[in-house]
Design a protein around this nucleic acid. Structure first.
Lengths: 168, 168
DNA sequence: AATTAAGTCTATTCATTTAATAGACTTTAT
DNA sequence: ATAAAGTCTATTAAATGAATAGACTTAATT
């Protein structure tokens, strides 16, 4: 799966809406300004997310956008699937399963593709906006655990890792 | 990371070369015919892989292509990186690490992207052509284990899984 | 030496996607 | 009534993706 610029904008906008959850509607202009996104383009993105019922809008003066669900109930996978499509590196999961069923010659290759998509899905379906927004709207008393442990995919890789400078 | 049609062709061609490893050079035309790939397009792909030293060519009559290394030493990640670029869903690993370092606002988001890329890298860097080609050139005596277990990413998902029909 | 069978290289084309911009229209608070 | 917002449709420019075409080079065969 490839996350496009548009997909990144969508995620950024949603993070911002998550930070302001329960504080009323935010204007497109404000989101665009604060996140430094092209306003007219963002407009289209928000509209698309509204049609997908992930956000809701308030029209007219004092209008804007807000999340329809709490940040903890919006998974990154939803946003990415909406804007950029399937999580699989090639085709989508159903196609891959069909190919694995029917194309004996390349079965093992497609199975690898499916493994990759499953690994991505596991992460993105278990990470919510709440997991990635900063301090924002913090319910007091709850000891903040940064993020549900994803099974620790190469956790040591963040600081001074041996892979540095070796391209991707 | 997105695997393009071109990337798929490259992988298919490499699988075919792997099946015929140590049997001399195979003509582009034969690869194209057997794998049903557009011949002229495949030509460019093979040339690119030759320049990347993953395959070698024999020119002139009786010429063709062959792998430069045994199938067990050619990782899917190499082929995909060459043809389709970085494994990360956005940017590449180095960029992501830089962003994680410098962009406090979006750090957690980029960390998720990096987790996804690491999960993909883990699979693709540990799967070789030998793991995915069929019976082909089988060394006798060795009990064939289909493939190194990748840590079983949702292994139960292949048959009659609950996710069916729910899109990707 | 001539012929033929291969890979090599450069250019071009066509369609789609991506990223954005523009502007007229609708709704609502004041 | 006005101004401030979202809504909707269209357009565009650039990049990418997927090929196709054809002239050129190298090497085996006769």
């Amino acid at each position: 799966m490839k996350i496009s610029q548009k997909g990144l904008y969508a995620l950024q906008a949603m993070m911002m809406l998550a930070r302001h959850y329960n504080q009323g509607a935010i204007r497109i202009r404000d989101i665009a300004y604060e996140e430094d996104l092209p306003e007219k383009f963002l407009e289209l993105i928000l509209l698309e997310m509204k049609n997908a019922r992930m956000v809701e809008s308030v029209r007219g003066a004092k209008g804007g956008y807000q999340l329809r669900r709490p940040p903890a109930e919006i998974h990154l996978s939803e946003i990415i699937r909406l804007i950029d499509g399937a999580l699989a590196p090639f085709g989508d999961a159903d196609q891959l399963r069909t190919l694995i069923d029917r194309d004996a010659e390349h079965r093992a290759l497609y199975q690898v593709f499916l493994d990759v998509r499953n690994a991505a899905a596991r992460i993105l379906e278990n990470t919510t906006l709440a997991d990635i927004v900063g301090p924002g709207v913090r319910k007091p008393g709850k000891k903040s655990r940064k993020k549900a442990d994803q099974g620790g995919v190469l956790p040591m890789v963040v600081h001074g890792n041996p892979n540095r400078g070796k391209d991707e």
